[in-house]
């Protein structure tokens, strides 16, 4: 499938591979003994293969200029999709932060309510509230109370 996406994806992957190779050579030591593949060998091989695949993809895209099918012109992401992806990512990062700082019991309902309102666009407050409390309690019972897996209690919170 040669598409308009490949024209920038191929070179991007090649650049990514070159950055990877630079990082590998800069941060991973080579083999301790001659003839033995050290910790660097496999990452180098992967970088070279990715760079090669990026070049092949770029060449394929160049050769197919003007022959794209209409389906290939579909944008990778619409504005709405991009915002929802960013929103989901942001919320997951926020969840990780809140789990660490205020703990599972407080962080989870906050995140559920935010996700329901902001991402799922639910405006029924009873549903949002019951889901936030229900999921939090359900998860706490399953993980903490029944299975004995400790959930984060939060470094900012001092529980009695």
């Amino acid at each position: 499938m040669k598409s308009a996406v490949d024209r920038w994806l191929g070179p991007s992957l090649t650049v990514l591979a070159l950055v990877w190779l630079w990082l590998v050579y800069a941060y991973i030591p080579g083999a301790r003994f001659e003839g033995e593949p050290g910790p660097r060998a496999f990452p180098v091989l992967l970088g070279v293969v990715l760079a090669g695949l990026g070049v092949v993809m770029s060449l394929q895209a160049l050769m197919s200029v003007g022959r794209e099918r209409s389906a290939d012109a579909t944008p990778v992401l619409t504005g709405r999709e991009a915002w929802l992806a960013i929103g989901t990512f942001g919320l997951l990062i926020l969840y990780a932060f809140l789990l660490d700082k205020i703990g599972f019991i407080v962080a989870t309902p906050v995140v559920i309510a935010t996700a329901m309102y902001g991402l799922a666009q639910v405006r029924r407050w009873v549903l949002i509230g019951s889901l936030a409390i229900g999921i939090t309690l359900g998860c706490w019972v399953i993980f903490d109370a029944l299975l004995g897996t400790p959930l984060p209690s939060g470094s900012w919170v001092v529980w009695p």
């Binding site: 789990l99 995140v111 996700a115 329901m116 991402l119 799922a120 959930l151």
Partner: peptide, 9 residues
């Protein structure tokens, strides 16, 4: 939303 939270936990 439920899966999102489950992913985190």
């Amino acid at each position: 939303v439920c899966i999102l939270v489950l992913c985190g936990i």
